[in-house]
């Protein structure tokens, strides 16, 4: 049994896979990787099933010892990783010898870096998923962020058993014997996180006046410090509330932009509440979800309205790239 020892956990590091979809009737939101595209690529670089669990680090990474060695890949934002003091390249599979130490620092780009390992991080599944649900203290490693001294188990590589493909993942690549891989420059460019988030109208967009919508689409919003996996809180142009009455709670979707009293929007994120009573002015498109996962506090963003068909096309294009041969090349 191969292990990962947590020497330093970093600011906020959790075990995440692509989430537990299908438990809305119990009030359980999917959670899962904040930037699922990066996690999926990290896994593919290693030949894992793309929905395999990895470590999600936030803003400041940790230090991990690998007493038995491992094949690893880093995806997402650059946290200045070093292996035994030598810089490690992002988006490329690499090998750690037994006893080596992998150290991360503060982010040099976006909010999250993924440490993926061949065989995946193995934890007891909760509702079919390894993802940590922080609010309820369920899933992942003991239902919480990692602490100094935690020891994680690395799964067996190339298992033939039916892997948790994550009902969330749109396609899956089986684990096979693969060499070392690197993400292609083209894919890296196309999957670059965006600061202009594309949205479709929310179910209550008609509740808002034209003036209110103009403020929403023309303002630059700042990501507030209080943002977390439940919601990304924004500060900027105040959106006037609609006159007349509260709405009745209804199901809310990932990426919904809700406008509470006070008019400062909140984007519902991976550990979202499953229902809510604030009107939604817009919804971030699926192809831009991974960009949400890379937003840091104080980042500035804007919203751009797109048509339903555009949203579909962009997602199809992204998934086509994710499934294509061009995504990565063998080293």
């Amino acid at each position: 049994m191969r292990l990962i020892e947590v020497l330093e956990p970093g600011l906020f590091t959790t075990v995440q896979d692509v989430g537990r979809e299908g438990y809305g009737p119990l009030g359980v939101s999917p959670s899962g990787a904040a930037d699922a595209v990066s996690l999926r690529i990290g896994n593919r670089l290693l030949g894992n099933a793309e929905g395999e669990a990895g470590l999600e680090m936030t803003l400041l990474g940790g230090t991990f010892a690998l007493p038995d060695g491992a094949v690893l890949a880093l995806a997402g934002s650059d946290f200045g990783a070093t292996l035994e003091g030598k810089p490690v390249e992002m988006w490329t599979a690499f090998e750690a010898a037994p006893g080596q130490v992998l150290r991360f620092g503060p982010t040099r780009s976006g909010a999250r870096c993924y440490l993926c390992v061949r065989g995946g991080v193995e934890v007891q599944l909760f509702l079919d998923s390894a993802s940590t649900h922080i609010l309820s203290g369920l899933g992942g490693h003991k239902g919480r962020a990692l602490k100094k001294g935690d020891v994680l188990t690395i799964g067996l590589a190339n298992r033939n058993e039916q892997k948790r493909t994550g009902k969330n993942a749109c396609s899956t690549v089986g684990a096979g014997t693969v060499g070392k891989r690197r993400l292609s420059a083209r894919a890296l460019k196309e999957l670059q996180p965006r600061k202009v988030l594309r949205v479709t109208p929310g179910p209550q967009s008609d509740w808002f006046s034209e003036a209110a919508k103009k403020i929403f689409y023309e303002s630059t919003y700042r990501v507030a410090e209080e943002s977390n996996l439940m919601g990304i809180r924004l500060q900027g142009g105040v959106i006037p509330a609609r006159a007349g009455g509260e709405m009745i709670s209804e199901g809310v979707s990932l990426g919904a932009v809700q406008v509470p009293e006070g008019g400062q929007p909140i984007i519902l994120f991976v550990e979202q509440q499953t229902t809510g009573g604030y009107p939604k002015i817009a919804n971030v498109i699926s192809a831009d979800f991974h960009s949400l996962g890379q937003l840091r506090p104080r980042d500035e963003i804007r919203f751009e309205r797109v048509e339903w068909d555009t949203a579909r096309t962009l997602l199809a294009k992204q998934e086509k790239l994710m499934a294509s041969e061009e995504l990565m090349r063998e080293l």
Partner: peptide, 17 residues
């Protein structure tokens, strides 16, 4: 892929691909 029931509504989430 998922269903979110509420008072008088049901949110139906599907695979958009």
């Amino acid at each position: 892929r998922n269903l979110h029931p509420a008072y008088c509504s049901l949110l139906v989430k599907f695979d958009a691909i």
